[in-house]
């Protein structure tokens, strides 16, 4: 029971990470396509400016909880995905620094270098997270000692790549919607128009991903056994549809909310489909890591549950406060810090 709770919490942490960092990674990826001048670039940096750091901690927590609740899974996952994870981390480092460093020197070369870091440092993580999670949904060639026998290029299979493209598209849509909340004038119009253009692409990609998952992975097994679970998929589709409906009405906040539900439910769909496995071995089901053979001791899980029950609601509370306080539309240079 405790293991199951932690498995779900583990999934929720990743889902929240995708929802939160998703929008600023999306904005970073879209920057070369949306910003027409220096002021608009700065608006794009500032749109996610107050939040990127707090958003990224969800990644740290997801990693930390993998370590705390399922140490063997943490060990296998991050040593097994070594090169991909290093790329992800280096990209996130460059992106984080670009926020702070770019505007500090009035020099075009300096700025364009950091712009490149911001764009690459947003696009690559989106792609890599998608590739990684698609591969987790399908399983990795883990041997008897739970060691991944595949390499970086084995991750770049068609299903993994589809997952990567889906994540990039989802995050771009999510980012365009967030920019619609925070930008004003032409940039806002452009962001909404881009969201409209991205939306059908996301729809097609997610349907293709689900169909591919149905034939290529075991994810649907749990859903066929427990049809009520399909509500997760229904919620995902509803979120995506609602985001389009509200976009058409020009209600950016609600459209972003729909997209947030969509992203969270796509992630949860995969995680719930994996249960009780965390890492599936494609070589032999007995070599998979599950909540039974990868979990921490009961005492650790209990203590951590107490910690999570106290702190996670607090975190959610002050992060919501921060988002509500600092997400007013950016009207002029006066509102810019970066």
């Amino acid at each position: 029971m405790l293991e199951t709770i932690w498995f779900l919490l583990w999934g929720v942490l990743w889902a929240v990470y995708f929802v939160l960092d998703g929008f600023d990674l999306g904005i970073g990826t879209l920057m070369p396509f949306l910003a027409k001048n220096e002021y608009e670039k700065r608006v794009m940096y500032n749109a996610g400016g107050p939040f990127w750091d707090g958003n990224e901690v969800w990644l740290l927590s997801a990693g930390g909880v993998t370590f705390a609740a399922f140490p063997q899974a943490y060990a296998t996952m991050f040593s097994g995905l070594y090169s991909a994870l290093m790329l992800l981390l280096f990209a996130l480092i460059l992106r984080g620094v670009s926020f702070e460093f770019r505007g500090k020197v009035e020099n075009d070369t300096w700025k364009s270098v950091w712009d490149a870091c911001q764009v690459a440092g947003s696009f690559l993580p989106a792609l890599l997270l998608g590739v990684a999670f698609a591969n987790l949904f399908h399983g990795l060639p883990l041997n008897e000692a739970h060691v991944n026998t595949g390499g970086l290029f084995d991750l770049l299979n068609p299903y993994g790549l589809l997952g990567g493209v889906l994540f990039v598209a989802m995050f771009c849509l999510h980012g365009a919607l967030w920019l619609s909340i925070r930008a004003t004038g032409e940039l806002k119009d452009r962001a909404m128009a881009t969201a409209c253009k991205l939306w059908p692409a996301v729809l097609v990609l997610v349907l293709a991903f689900l169909a591919y998952s149905f034939v290529h992975t075991q994810l649907f097994g749990n859903y066929l056994k427990n049809p009520p679970l399909l509500l997760i998929l229904v919620a995902a589709v509803a979120g995506l549809l609602l985001s389009r409906v509200y976009l058409a009405k020009g209600q950016a906040w609600k459209a972003w909310g729909g997209s947030a539900v969509f992203i969270a439910c796509v992630a949860l769909f995969g995680v719930v489909g994996l249960y009780p496995a965390i890492l599936i071995s494609t070589l032999n089901p007995a070599w998979s890591l599950t909540i039974h053979n990868a979990a921490s001791s009961t005492l650790t899980l209990k203590i951590m549950l107490g910690v999570a029950l106290v702190f996670v609601p607090l975190v959610i509370g002050y992060q919501i406060w921060s988002i509500l306080t600092f997400s007013k539309p950016i009207q002029s240079e006066h509102d810019l810090e970066y």
């Binding site: 939040f51 750091d53 740290l60 930390g64 140490p71 910690v307 702190f311 975190v315």
Partner: peptide, 29 residues
């Protein structure tokens, strides 16, 4: 990680949930 994660991992996870969130959210604020 696999050998001592039961203890060490939980301490890192507590560091992130109790401290990093607070620090990183309020640095933006």
């Amino acid at each position: 990680s696999a050998y001592v994660g039961d203890i060490f991992g939980s301490l890192l996870a507590i560091e992130a949930t109790a401290a990093f969130f607070l620090e990183s959210t309020f640095i933006g604020v």
